[in-house]
C-alpha cells in the first residue's frame, strides 16, 4: 500500500515539471529613417532679417528620409516659429517658412511637392514610394517693424517626423 502511494506522488511531481514558459521575441527595424544631411545657417542680409535663403547669405538645411515600405508613412516637417536660443528679444518676430522636395531617388517622388499639405508652419508629405527623398526647409525671421536684431547667437529648430499612416 505504501509503495503505491509513493509511486502516485512521484508521477504527480514529474507531471508538474513538464510545464514551461515559451518566450517569443522579435525586433522591429524602422522602415523610415530620418537623417540630417546638412544643418542650416541663418544669413543676416538686413539688420532686421535672418534667413536661410542662399540669396540672403544663409544655408538651407537638408533633411533626408529613407523609406523602405512604400505608402506606410508620411513626412511631417515643421519650420521654426521661435528661436530655441537667442539674445533677449522684446519685440514681435514675424516667421516665414516652407518645405520643398530637393532631391528624389524615383521620378514619381517629384509628385510629393504638388501633393503636400500645408498648415500653420507645418508641411506633410505622403511617402508613397520606397526610396530616398530629401527635403529643404527654409526659414525667415523678421524682427519688429524694421528693428535690428540684437547681437548674439540665434538658434532655431526644424522638426522632422516620420509618422505611420
Amino acid at each position: 500500500m505504501f509503495n503505491k502511494i509513493a509511486f502516485i506522488m512521484l508521477m504527480t511531481a514529474s507531471l508538474g515539471a513538464l510545464a514551461e514558459d515559451v518566450i517569443i521575441r522579435g525586433n522591429v527595424a524602422s522602415k523610415c529613417v530620418i537623417h540630417t544631411d546638412r544643418a542650416g545657417v541663418y544669413g543676416n542680409p538686413t539688420p532686421d532679417t535672418l534667413s536661410t535663403a542662399t540669396a540672403d547669405g544663409g544655408v538651407t538645411p537638408v533633411v533626408r528620409y529613407d523609406v523602405v515600405s512604400a505608402g506606410s508613412y508620411k513626412a511631417v516637417i515643421t519650420t521654426p516659429s521661435s528661436f530655441s536660443s537667442s539674445p533677449i528679444l522684446d519685440d514681435v518676430i514675424s516667421w516665414e517658412g516652407s518645405v520643398s522636395v530637393s532631391e528624389v531617388s524615383d521620378a514619381g517622388m517629384s509628385a510629393y511637392t504638388t501633393n503636400k499639405r500645408v498648415y500653420n508652419n507645418t508641411s506633410e508629405f505622403d511617402l508613397t514610394i520606397a526610396g530616398t527623398v530629401k527635403f529643404k526647409p527654409t526659414s525667415k525671421a523678421e524682427y519688429g517693424y524694421g528693428k535690428p536684431f540684437p547681437g548674439g547667437e540665434y538658434r532655431a529648430i526644424v522638426v522632422a517626423e516620420c509618422i505611420a499612416l
Binding site: E103, V104, S105, D106, A107, S110, T113
Partner: peptide, 11 residues
C-alpha cells in the same frame, strides 16, 4: 517625369 514637376534625382 510625365505629369510631374521637375526635380533633381539621385538614384
Amino acid at each position: 517625369w510625365s505629369g510631374l514637376p521637375g526635380n533633381r534625382i539621385n538614384r
